[in-house]
Structure formats: C-alpha cells, structure tokens
Amino acid sequence: MELTHFDDEGRAKMVNVGDKGITERVAVARGSISMKPETLEFILTNRIKKGDVLAVAQIGGIMGVKKTGDLIPMCHNIIIEGADIRFSIDKNNSRINIEAEVHITGKTGVEMEALTAVSVAALTIYDMCKAVDKTMTIDNIRLIKKSGGRSGTFMREVL
C-alpha cells in the first residue's frame, strides 16, 4: 500500500483531492472514558460544579469535528453536513462510552473528524471532572465504520 502524504523525496504533503469524485461519506468512531463510580454518579446527578457534563461534552465533540482540519496537519478543511455525538452509560464498569457519527458529501473522508469528535468529547469530560477524579482513563478510540469514496466501505469486526 502506498502512503499518499509523502512526495517523491519523502517530505510531507497534503494530498490533492481535486480529481476525486464527490460522494456521500459517513464515518463512525467510538471510545470511552472510565472513572471512579462516585464520579460517574456525580455526572449522572448533575453535581459537577462546571455544569451538565454530557451536554458540554456533546458540544465539545461537535466543535472538534469542525476544527479537525486545524488540528491534524494533513487534513483538509471540509464542509460538515451533519455530526452527532452519543453517550451510553456503563455503570457496571464505571464508564461512559462515546460514539460520533459524521456526514458529508465531498471528495475526502470524515474518519479523522469522527475520531477527533470522540477524543474531544472524552477530553471535555475529563476537564469538567478532573477536580473530583484525576484517575479517569480515556481508552479505545477507534474507527468503527466508514463509507464513501474510492476505498468503499470499512466495517470493524466486533469481537
């Protein structure tokens, strides 16, 4: 497989997507943040002094989608058509699972945007709760699915 972000002399370059076709593109990424059970209870009962943790993390994740091209050196700035951040609570493992889904119609994929959304949402949760729990762990951020473009559909096998 050829790496496309390097020129003939091995220097970094931004890929030219001018010849690519415009297709509907979707990416889904997931990750999680684990914490002490008391911290999760504080979040669920809205007792974190900085405010509604999941509402702010949802906005943070969406903002991350919009800023991905500014954060990741070789990402193109793209027009986002839709982004959704979802949370599921795993009380048994004292964890918040995060899922981001990003949609565009364009010439380049949105995998990095979905991964950035999960990362920023998790970092937002950490930031809002660090006063009560510095042991939180952000974990397992990964691409679950992507569709559109020349490479077609990717679907991670679930074990």
Rank of each mutant, 00 (worst) to 15 (best):
M35Y: 10
L44F: 08
T23N: 09
G60I: 05
D19C: 10
L3S: 06
M63P: 06
S34V: 05
C75E: 10
R25W: 05
S34M: 08
I78D: 00
I43A: 08
P37E: 11
L143P: 04
V120Q: 04
E157K: 14
T116P: 04
M128Q: 08
V56G: 01
V56H: 00
T124I: 12
R142Q: 14
V132W: 04
Y126K: 06
M35N: 10
A122L: 12
M1R: 14
T135P: 05
G69T: 07
D8R: 14
F42A: 15
M112T: 05
K134Q: 14
N93Q: 12
S119M: 13
A29C: 04
E157D: 12
R30V: 08
V28Q: 01
E113H: 09
I59Q: 04
K13E: 09
T116A: 06
G148D: 07
N16H: 10
Y126N: 05
A29S: 08
I48G: 02
R142L: 11
G51I: 03
A29H: 02
E99T: 13
I33W: 07
I33P: 08
E81R: 13
S119D: 11
K146E: 00
N93I: 03
H76N: 07
N97V: 12
M14S: 03
M155G: 00
K91I: 10
K49I: 12
K20A: 06
M74E: 10
V53K: 07
E111M: 00
I43R: 08
D90S: 01
D133K: 11
T137I: 15
M1H: 14
K130F: 09
V65R: 02
A27N: 00
K107Y: 10
I141S: 05
K36G: 13
V132P: 04
I62D: 03
V53W: 07
I78F: 00
D84V: 14
I79F: 14
E24A: 13
N46I: 11
V26S: 04
R95E: 14
